[in-house]
Design a protein around this nucleic acid. Sequence first.
DNA 1: CGCTGACCCTGACGGC
DNA 2: TGCCGTCAGGGTCAGC
Length: 275
Amino acid sequence: MPELPEVETIVNGLKPHVTGKRIEDIIIRNSSLRWPVAHNLHEILYKKNIEQVYRRAKYLIFKVKNGNLLMHLGMSGQLCLKTPQDLVKKHDHLDIVLSDNVILRYNDARRFGSCLWVEDIASHFLLKNLGPEPLSDEFNPEYMVKLAINKKTVIKQFIMNSKVVVGVGNIYATEALFAAGLHPLKPVNTITVAQWKLLISAIKDVLVKAIEKGGTTLKDFVNSTGKPGYFSQALKVYQRAGLDCFNCGNTLKLLRIGQRSSVFCDNCQNMSADL
DNA sequence: CGCTGACCCTGACGGC
DNA sequence: TGCCGTCAGGGTCAGC
């Protein structure tokens, strides 16, 4: 469900309602997420103040005294602001009850998400090997050229690898490759500096625009207030296999790359080194 | 070390 | 109406 723009949208929505609030209760209805939710989470967090809320990769981080609550939404996770009057629904696995009757409610049908207590973010095994943020200056052509030397990995899997760069999931990888005119199966050691420049700008551009639209709702993405995002209307190739390319009119093709579906235009997206 | 595929889980959808 | 196969925005991990 959520890629970087969706998590960013949720974090931005939560910030004003959560920052500075005190944790009054933790209700765990189902602890079997990607990793088991600690049974003593209540004791750890009780009466602690949420000092800060921010995003790293696709993780949401709630900073409190002496540590952090690290959350990931997996494919189907939702994190919404609720009140005590809101009914508990199917797959509402976790409530973080805050002062002023604010409830942060985690819902996740597939339970691929996680909720972990982490004392030191920098050294945590889930975070310490992550690559740079895609919207940072660290994510630049020189960095990618250096990483791609001698690697035959195909470009789509490369940009979706969080050790290379974080936050680029299947939707935005697909869209950025189309925008940059690069075939998703192109080996990374054949990509020129000019092509890296084009691709990196395309990734930054698609992520920024998606954040501006409040994320992409394909099926069930909602922000912290339960509203959808509107970037799906701007998608050029994702979920459009078999339809006409907006650029050239050719039929868009579908491939499976690393168990993920990949839509592309074999006329506009080429394998060669020319631009 | 790097890459591939299996796997975690529920739900929606299409074909029969 | 139901059963079955397939697919879905994520990421880890074993095995080669």
